[in-house]
Design a protein around this nucleic acid. Structure first.
Lengths: 265, 265
DNA sequence: CGGTAGTTTGAACAAGGTCAATTGAGGTGG
DNA sequence: CCACCTCAATTGACCTTGTTCAAACTACCG
């Protein structure tokens, strides 16, 4: 079985004892967090509800470059990103490994290990970040009805499955331009959905990371970003990007080079 | 919530009233089926146990070309393939749509819809097949402890998540040769795991289906299969394939063209 | 102030896609 | 039973896309 344990309540919901953020940067509100449904069941009601400090859900800070779990580690917890960003990748002997995903504030880490013994990938912070850790093994200690907890876990997993299916079927059939336009729009939308700025944000991951994630060479990523800038689709300085012509990006992403609105290519 | 309903027991476990199979072809044993854990909890113990005919799990035959659910249909059930094979694809206006997966005997259909309102893809039988249908909405009627049922659903989903992650990260970074070698080995292994012949089997899906699934043109699929045959890696006649040199296929799949054992490319 | 790692840019090359013609198999109707 | 039709599969020629190799450049950090 997946779930079993003893209760604790965390400071996740309350801002009180907690720093405003790893270094004052944007932090996702609890209501916009992917772990929120579970939190609510555990009793972390509205915002800043008066609960004892948590044992079941732990708030943790993670320094840039630090890994919260490594490929092969025994599975214990899933995590929600509160602030900052992460990449998950499967280390590949000799090479830098293959990036399988990026996690932004409000998103979950480690769910793919739920029915495995060990984590299948490593999760590394791309900048100074903070996370909420939910120790699944201890969930039953919460005294909350197990059905509810499991129900929301099922929700989380289901969404994850749907997302990867969609991602895969699109990535595999798209050109490099489409992938990158789609990637930018996707990042933007995810940030926006969690209440952060979707119009201008940092690409906290390297070009190689993006390339690995999208199945492209890092040079290609760089080239296409430059071209997008030349075409006034985006504004790019350092690792900061600003989406200028979102409509045009959508066009590119949906495979309309110039003329037709053809389906895939 | 996901689960709620009223009990029924099916003829799934017993061969008694059921035809030997859609047309006498290979059928997966219950013990090797992905739905088995759930079935057991529902009380369909060992094999052919003496249970009333089922209401909760329905056995159904599906004719070649028939869809058991379509993209956009309201979610009701998940399915396990008992015999035959299916493809799932998202219909794309104008085109033939993009194949997101193939399901062989013992494997599940529809799980990705569990936390969605509707199925995100269409599932169509590639040959005359049979399935077990599990109506999730009625599960609670079973009288079985909900935790157990949910627990195994979580297992199913978790495996699904892990599988898609792995699939995606590999497909994106592999050459056409690698994808096809890997595809053949994957089919073989999945058939073998369910107790069917993994050395020689039918490619029930068209070359275009394979291409769509792997992100390749159908011509490329055809070309590479021909080349594999010329190199004595496989024997190919019509849609029947026989793996001759499995070791060599593994080599190709793991990106070792000839010389080095280089990681990815 | 130099060193290092990530990024940008250029040029040649290779993998796979596109277009098109041909073959082969299964199904239908005479 | 055979001619014909249709659609999938095969094969070839050509071309686009993205990779590879290489070099210059920039920010970041001692």
């Amino acid at each position: 079985m997946i779930i079993g344990g003893q209760v604790r309540v965390s400071d996740s919901r309350s801002r009180e004892g907690t720093e405003p953020g790893p270094h004052g940067q944007d932090e996702v509100a609890c209501a916009a967090c992917g772990l929120d449904p579970v939190c609510r069941i555990l009793g972390y009601g509205g915002d800043g509800s008066n609960l004892p400090r948590g044992l079941l859900i732990l708030r943790r800070h993670v320094a840039r470059g630090e890994a919260i779990f490594r490929c092969g580690d025994a599975f214990r917890s899933i995590f929600a990103v509160k602030s900052g960003s992460f990449k998950t990748f499967v280390p590949h002997a000799g090479g830098p490994g293959q990036v399988v995903g990026f996690q932004l504030p409000g998103e979950l880490l480690g769910v793919e290990a739920i029915s495995l013994e060990t984590y299948p990938s490593t999760a590394r912070a791309l900048e100074n970040s903070s996370v909420c850790e939910l120790c699944l093994a201890r969930l039953p200690e919460s005294g909350r009805p197990l059905e509810l907890l499991q129900g929301s876990i099922i929700e989380l997993l289901g969404r994850e499955v749907a997302f990867s299916h969609q991602l895969m079927s699109s990535l595999l059939h798209q050109s490099a331009d489409q992938r990158i336009a789609g990637f930018l729009l996707n990042l933007s939308e995810r940030l926006h959905r969690r209440g952060l700025s979707g119009g201008e944000f940092n690409l906290t991951m390297s070009r190689s990371d993006i390339g690995s994630y999208l199945g492209l060479a890092s040079e290609t990523v760089s080239r296409i970003l430059s071209r997008f800038q030349k075409s006034r689709l985006i504004r790019l300085r350092r690792r900061r990007v600003r989406l200028i012509d979102r409509a045009a990006l959508q066009m590119v992403a949906s495979s309309a080079g110039q003329g037709g609105v053809g389906p895939a290519r």
